[in-house]
Write a protein that binds this DNA or RNA. Structure first.
Lengths: 237, 237
DNA sequence: GTACAAAACGAACGATCGTGCTAAGACAAG
DNA sequence: CTTGTCTTAGCACGATCGTTCGTTTTGTAC
């Protein structure tokens, strides 16, 4: 057992160290998104933060622990940028659409330098067993499940045809955003997002119940205005 | 100008060296698909082939040249494994479907250890300017265009509704295979391919002309047998 | 003030990176 | 056989990798 004062002291220390740790992770997450989790280097990171290699290293103890911390940090950013805004919407079709829209927007505003952090790290680690891979796979699974869960809510709420295979739907919606991330980052072409959104709306419209189809139509029309107005003319060359 | 004999001699040398070069690239392409093009290391590769680092290095002159050669080699393999089989089919919907099927099959039989080589390297290099990135982007563009071209043929042949936006269609088909590659390699779950194929057939059916819809239905039924028979039971848990 | 613990540092470890430089071996031309 | 060219090897370079170790700095408790 520790005295109160000792605990107090430790908390202060931790708070002080935690500040540095967060600064490190903030920088690390952006380096990793551009260079990959394996390309992320302790020396390079220390230089960027004007710290000593050993001082930085002491916060994590091993490179793998650093990578795990970076993935967790990326998760926090993803939650803040995508999940939280979307979850302000009511459950069901509205939230599902918001999740996809926020996700596309987060790719589009390049929250991470190298596109969606999790798509990049998933492909980097998918054939590299270990804790890092497991963590990435788990987070990816959760997000995919969250999409499917929302589709099920939409069914329960009568917004989506109950005959629709929600796992299939989640797979396809996910694939469309994946495709947009790929297209946008490789070709630097913002049309990727229109394409993805068109696909998403088609998938959702396909299983929408007649009553809610109008609702969806309104929503989508309102949202599409922002993006597609300028590019629509370009497309009809 | 060179004498005939000199040219003859050089060709022999080249042929001898080219054999070694091909052996190197064969190994390199598989290492790169698992570890990434940047993770591919000259020393590691030399060990694997029981060559000296410098002897191997002399074939390329720089790491970037090696990477470029590896990407070209991967292209050759992709052509042999996917493009050639698909292009035996007649132009139009048949070939388009064959391209996607062969592509999925090539991902499924893990021609490269780390999933589809080009998806992995595209994401690795998309935020890393240089010749390698340009080469990958060019090849990706060609393949995407090839999909769209075939869709246009399908329209010209009356197999596909001429109102369908072929660029949009190609984007979505590509995204579905992309999604399957991601899902399969991350979760090691072969259902990825059923999902992708279901999505692909939905996309094609959507714009199919009434006459050819029956044809498509037959084709898809014949092909689906092979894959989904065993997994269909698993799914209905 | 002294005592103590956490945080950060500096220097070095062995390993490996990409890349040169030089020489040995293989083989064809004269 | 000599000569020249191409292939492969040997060796070393400076840099950087992840990691360890002992020390110094910093800030709080007494």
């Amino acid at each position: 057992m520790k005295a109160v004062s000792e605990i107090r002291k430790e908390q202060d220390r931790e708070a002080r160290g935690a500040k540095t740790r967060q600064d490190i992770l903030q920088a690390a997450v952006h380096v990793a998104s551009a260079e990959g989790l394996e390309g992320l280097t302790i020396g390079r990171l220390a230089d960027e933060l004007r710290m000593s290699k050993s001082g930085l290293f002491a916060h994590f103890g091993s490179k793998e622990e650093l990578q795990l911390a970076v993935v967790s940090k990326a998760r926090d950013i993803f939650v803040r940028e995508v999940v939280d805004p979307a979850f302000k919407r009511d459950r069901g079709l509205g939230r599902l659409l918001a999740m996809l829209d926020e996700w596309l927007a987060y790719v589009g505003r390049s929250v991470f330098r190298g596109g969606c952090f999790f798509m990049a790290s998933a492909i980097e680690f998918d054939s590299r067993p270990g804790k890092v891979r497991d963590l990435i796979a788990g987070l990816s699974r959760s997000w995919l499940d969250a999409l499917e869960t929302e589709a099920r809510y939409a069914q329960a709420l009568g917004q989506l045809d109950p005959h629709v295979d929600t796992a299939q739907l989640a797979f396809e919606l996910h694939a469309l955003v994946h495709g947009a991330n790929w297209y946008y980052n490789l070709f630097e072409d913002k049309r990727a997002f229109e394409r993805a959104r068109t696909g998403i709306l088609d998938r959702l419209r396909h299983g929408a119940t007649p009553g809610l189809l109008r609702l969806l139509g309104e929503k989508s029309a309102a949202r599409m205005k922002t993006i597609s107005k300028k590019t629509k003319r370009k497309e009809s060359r």
